[in-house]
Design a protein around this nucleic acid. Structure first.
Lengths: 155, 155
DNA sequence: CACATATATCTGCCTAGGCTGATATTGTAG
DNA sequence: CTACAATATCAGCCTAGGCAGATATATGTG
């Protein structure tokens, strides 16, 4: 069991936690800028947080419940209710009460939501590619595996 | 110029942006849990956000301005003012107006702040080690380099 | 010096996430 | 069937970050 850091040699500026937090902030800020700059999407007034939910909802099979999204995104349930209120108000998603389990509400992208999705996907891909500039596919795979392992270690 | 992702094969669940956002959330949640569980630190009622600022302030040379911290942490200046209000109220930091440039206010950990620091450092190191469990030092270095490169690509 | 510009901090306003408890529904143990 | 625990959503309250504007100070230009 090898520990990576110890208190004697720990350098906050180079720590993985610090770097990751900053990269995440910068990546979401870049998403917000791209959204504001895009001719079609800017009209929707979609924030990066809403954007992430939409990409995730449509990109991984549509028709999932709010609690599914909460688990997948480590997101609060109360916040998700209001998040969906906003997306519904913008006409991007629809709530559909499940008939088999009436506690559940399935979410579904509307026609407008589906129409906006391809462009959202483009932006998401472009921003991530920009942040990964200079890396080879092998690097990206390794990075992804490291992150997946960390998420697993989170328990 | 190799692009890592393209819209045809992009998998949201395995994307680096998605994984990184989740790992970051889980890491801060772990910090909050550890803080609440610690006998000494729980009394201070320090949140993970305040914790990060303290580790950064004391761990990288003390005596820096609020705007320095904002840049280092990609943090809003208005939010930082209130963050420091809270830390000052808890007796962990002190504001000191700079005499050479009277716009600046230097921040300095108080005796109580310095006393709490070693334990904060321990927790920070322990949480990160836990998330990096199973990795070799070479892996951690690579991961750190990847993140640093991404931060650089953010521009 | 006068003036414009840049920087650091602070304040007010708005938005949004986290937490707690309420309600409805489902699953389970006896 | 009844009682109790678990789950999904929702609503209210609190906290905290982002943004715009105000103030004070510093810097650069003529």
């Amino acid at each position: 069991m090898t520990n990576i850091y110890d208190v004697e040699t720990y350098e906050p500026s180079e720590s993985i936690g610090y770097l990751m937090t900053r990269v995440k902030v910068e990546m979401l800020a870049a998403l917000d800028r791209e959204l504001a700059a895009d001719d079609h999407l800017s009209a929707l007034g979609v924030t990066s947080a809403q954007f992430v939910v939409m990409v995730r909802l449509v990109g991984t099979g549509n028709r999932k419940s709010a609690s599914d999204l909460c688990k997948e995104l480590s997101y609060d349930a109360g916040a998700m209710t209001r998040m969906i209120d906003r997306l519904e108000k913008k006409g991007l998603v629809r709530r559909m009460r499940c008939v088999k389990d009436r506690r559940l509400i399935y979410l579904e992208a509307t026609e407008a939501g589906c129409a906006a999705y391809p462009r959202m996907l483009e932006i998401s891909v472009a921003v991530q590619n920009r942040f990964l500039r200079g890396m080879e596919p092998d690097d990206a795979r390794r990075l992804r595996d490291y992150l997946a392992r960390m998420l697993h270690n989170a328990g």
